[in-house]
């Protein structure tokens, strides 16, 4: 973890972020700071805006207003919130890797091809180098023997581990996880959480939207509780789970455990 020091830019800074879909305001001014090496878990009930908040960070949803900076670089926004600079956003996205609830591997490419797609074509890494690194990562997530398989032939847990490996292949500065275990059969959740736990242990900066409270408590060092588009409470896992202050958070924790 990085000690205080103004010289080190925050890995992610979100300031007063608003997002509306038509007249529906989903995010009503949320802020978040992640230092390098932080693992931030965003929790909250369904419809609280947690996935939207995560997707705004890499502009998969265009924020309506607010400020986002990634490793100190402010992402330009127009007043109406539309992306100002597509090139800048594309460059930012290649440094911020995302893992989706439904894996979203490219179905017409093998696992290995999925892994090297972005390094080779977006980041222009030499192909041999990308393949070597992809194999290393696949071995790490326990899929060394699956590199020539197509995603549809893998179990959900294997697909999600491959998707995490694909995210790691771009050497991301920040990783975003959007409910990575919600689409998995219960017996497959453990293998995916195991991989994420290892990543947290090696000091990866991660933002994690999750329903797994036990897991959030164990791997995150910051917890953010969202309620109806606002941050109701935030703090360390001990504070949030051990001594929740707000009534809503108490109720939420009771309902999910």
């Amino acid at each position: 973890m990085v000690s205080d020091g103004a010289a080190v830019p925050k890995a992610i800074m979100v300031n007063d972020l608003h997002k509306s879909f038509g007249t529906l305001e989903v995010l009503k001014g949320v802020s978040l700071v992640a230092e390098k090496g932080d693992v931030v878990a965003i929790i909250g009930g369904s419809g609280s805006g947690k996935s939207t908040m995560l997707r705004c960070i890499n502009f998969l949803e265009t924020p309506s207003s607010g400020e986002i900076s990634i490793t100190g670089e402010v992402i330009e926004m127009k007043p109406d919130g539309s992306p100002h600079n597509q090139k800048q956003i594309e460059k930012m996205r290649s440094r911020v890797a995302m893992v989706f609830q439904s894996f979203n591997l490219w179905s017409h490419r093998t696992i290995l091809e999925n892994m090297i797609e972005v390094p080779v074509h977006v980041l222009k890494v030499p192909k041999a180098e990308a393949i070597a690194k992809a194999r290393e990562l696949l071995a790490r997530v326990g899929l060394a023997d699956k590199e020539d398989s197509y995603p549809a032939f893998l179990s959900g847990g294997q697909q999600q581990r491959a998707a995490i490996a694909r995210a790691l292949a771009v050497d991301p500065e920040v990783m975003l996880f959007d409910e990575p275990t919600s689409a998995l059969d219960p017996e497959l959740v453990g293998e995916v959480l195991g991989v994420i736990r290892d990543l947290a242990a090696e000091g990866r900066t991660m933002i994690l939207v999750t329903h797994e409270m036990k897991f959030a408590r164990e791997v995150a060092n910051k917890i953010v509780y969202l309620y109806e588009g606002r941050i109701e409470e935030h703090g360390t896992p001990a504070e949030i789970f051990g001594a929740p202050k707000s009534e809503r958070l108490k109720q939420f924790l009771q309902s999910v455990t």
Partner: peptide, 29 residues
């Protein structure tokens, strides 16, 4: 599946590359 397009966007693929590398091959079937 929208997720496949979204994944390409999320990894910073420019529009033309996305058409060539993801959209066209994925829609072929």
């Amino acid at each position: 599946p929208v997720g496949q397009i979204e994944a390409a966007r999320a990894f910073g693929m420019p529009a033309m590359m996305m058409m060539r590398r993801v959209t066209i091959p994925a829609m072929l079937s």
